[in-house]
Design a protein around this nucleic acid. Sequence first.
DNA 1: GTCTATAGCACGATAGAC
DNA 2: GTCTATCGTGCTATAGAC
Lengths: 197, 197
Amino acid sequence: MPKLRNTKEKIIEAAIDLIAENGYKGASVRKIAAKVGIRESAIYNHFKNKEDILKSIFSEIFSTPFEMKDIEEKAKKGKSFLHQYAVAYKLVSFDKKMEKLFRVMMIELFQNEDLRESFLKEFHQKEIQVLSKALFIMMQEGMVRSADPMFMAQEFISALFYIRIMVSLLRIDSKPTAPIATHFEKHVDFFWESISV
Amino acid sequence: MPKLRNTKEKIIEAAIDLIAENGYKGASVRKIAAKVGIRESAIYNHFKNKEDILKSIFSEIFSTPFEMKDIEEKAKKGKSFLHQYAVAYKLVSFDKKMEKLFRVMMIELFQNEDLRESFLKEFHQKEIQVLSKALFIMMQEGMVRSADPMFMAQEFISALFYIRIMVSLLRIDSKPTAPIATHFEKHVDFFWESISV
DNA sequence: GTCTATAGCACGATAGAC
DNA sequence: GTCTATCGTGCTATAGAC
């Protein structure tokens, strides 16, 4: 059963919706309050100021979407590990909540230094590390040709990221994503063919 | 000798600077006027309204950065064509004016439907077309393994786009880009190794 | 924790003198 | 083509009653 959300959660959710559509500056305290169904002043019982709401949202963006444990074990499966990774990435790309957070991230990434720092440290670097570790193991196992694992990881991720952006842009305008949705898996095939020995 | 720019050009330039930093909503007519050195009201002698300024900027973003003529001829050079393409992409990524326009594009892409349309049609599709055409020719020439040229083009472009985003993010905060700047060329090597027969 | 009321400011845009 | 002056609106935030 869906637990009745409290006001603070409602505020955050309303703010995410509005920022995803019109950016931080376009999501006024007025509009957020109206969407929640309270007055502007009531917002300040839950958040110090408007920026405080944004900070809460940022922390949600990087709340470990991919938990990658037992990399050593999983990496030995080779291509199917990459396939699993890409499918997880695809699911996140189409998840309603994550999609909105992705939009918020893309909009604010170029305007907010704190977000950039978090993105580079927590999002980018963490994903690269997991992947490069896996690729390194695959190299040791003789499944993958020898090369710089970090660079190879970036080559793998960049296509996924690109597809995710395209999916996000298409979905804003309710355009069909079917043609590009298959690219997640096709990328794994293409990539594996280029790195496997 | 640098031609003395007229007021209209100054307004656009000031607007690009401000939007690149704080987005469209953060670039107020007041601030733009102040940066140019005129009053707000004088802006309206050159532009119908604020949105009209944005439209002018958008048209600059897609003013054919890459002119690719004689594709048939160039494509036959194989890898060196891709290398040329990547280097051109790299130059644009580090060009001051183009860098600002890229930031404007990334910020507004998720907030402006007209821009999304232009991006998908003029930016994305045009680049994909040029590249897929070149790759198709390479396949005919027996230099590249047979596959869907459009998909292959997207695989090639996605890494360049990703690197460009990273470069842009790093440069906003004046962080070093040397490590990632070499990725443009490294990507060509990696990609060519995976598609050449 | 919500409300009403209000302060104080920045916004986009227009009118009219020069 | 630029200026001064001004209008109406929306913005973040606070004070104080309930």
